[in-house]
């Protein structure tokens, strides 16, 4: 995106950003993480672990800066520049959340099933609590809709809930552009059983399924 927004926000606030792990990050770093999460989410076919803390943090900053801005007089040049930056940031966050929502809606059954599995194995959940709630409500809504529309059909069809038989799943074999963030050795290409090494900063076109774990481990990013 744009470099100016990082500089701008880091001037405004430098003190109180923190991750859930009590990491101290500067505003510029936070935004960089957010941008990366955004592009990963945009290009990955499946839903990725949520970055709720980052989103919260940026939204907090936005309202904080907005509050400061309201003290400035209307035709101050600084005001319009800052306002522009805020708009950009807000776009970044809402686009990120929108992309996630679209994925949740498209693959709702599949995502909830995976989420259940993760919960049963005590793994970190990919959806944030409110996303999870939304996903469940969305699934129930669809369920109800189909049940209602198929009313009057023989009971054995209704009880089978045939719309759950063929759920829509993301195409994990889709090809993506990936950039290595550090030296990675031995990425296995499943079909040919080949191994490739990725140099730091190198870019490859690769099937998503081969690098999905590297994305969650923050070793590569999608571009």
């Amino acid at each position: 995106m744009n470099e100016s927004e990082e500089i701008n926000i880091s001037n405004e606030v430098n003190s109180d950003e923190s991750d859930s792990d009590e990491l101290i990050l500067t505003a510029a770093q936070v935004i960089q993480i957010m941008e990366e999460a955004w592009s990963n989410e945009k290009f990955a076919p499946e839903i990725l672990p949520h970055k709720y803390e980052i989103v919260e943090c940026i939204l907090g900053q936005i309202s904080h800066v907005e509050e400061n801005l309201s003290n400035l007089i209307n035709d101050d040049l600084r005001r319009s520049i800052h306002q522009m930056e805020l708009d950009r940031l807000r776009y970044l966050v809402s686009s990120y959340l929108r992309t996630r929502l679209e994925k949740i809606e498209a693959f709702v059954c599949c995502i909830l099933k995976e989420e259940d599995e993760r919960a049963s194995r005590n793994k970190l959940s990919y959806l944030s609590p409110s996303e999870l709630e939304f996903a469940k409500a969305y699934r129930d809504g669809l369920d109800q809709h189909f049940t209602d529309t198929l009313k009057l059909l023989p009971a054995e069809i209704l009880n089978n809930k045939i719309w759950q038989n063929e759920i829509i799943t993301p195409n994990l074999d889709a090809f993506v552009f990936a950039k290595a963030k550090s030296q990675i050795e031995g990425v296995m290409i499943e079909r040919d059983e080949e191994f490739v090494d990725l140099e730091k900063g190198s870019q490859v076109i690769i099937s998503y399924s081969n690098i999905s774990n590297l994305i969650t481990n923050d070793k590569v990013s999608l571009i």
């Binding site: 522009m84 776009y91 809402s94 939304f134």
Partner: peptide, 27 residues
């Protein structure tokens, strides 16, 4: 359900996701 989700996004009042659909170019 969408409204509820949007309200729950941040602590103070939520975020309206249905605006800011395109990257802003000018104020």
């Amino acid at each position: 359900m969408l409204a509820k989700y949007m309200r729950s996004i941040s602590e103070d009042g939520g975020l309206n996701l249905t605006v800011d659909l395109n990257p802003p170019k000018a104020l």
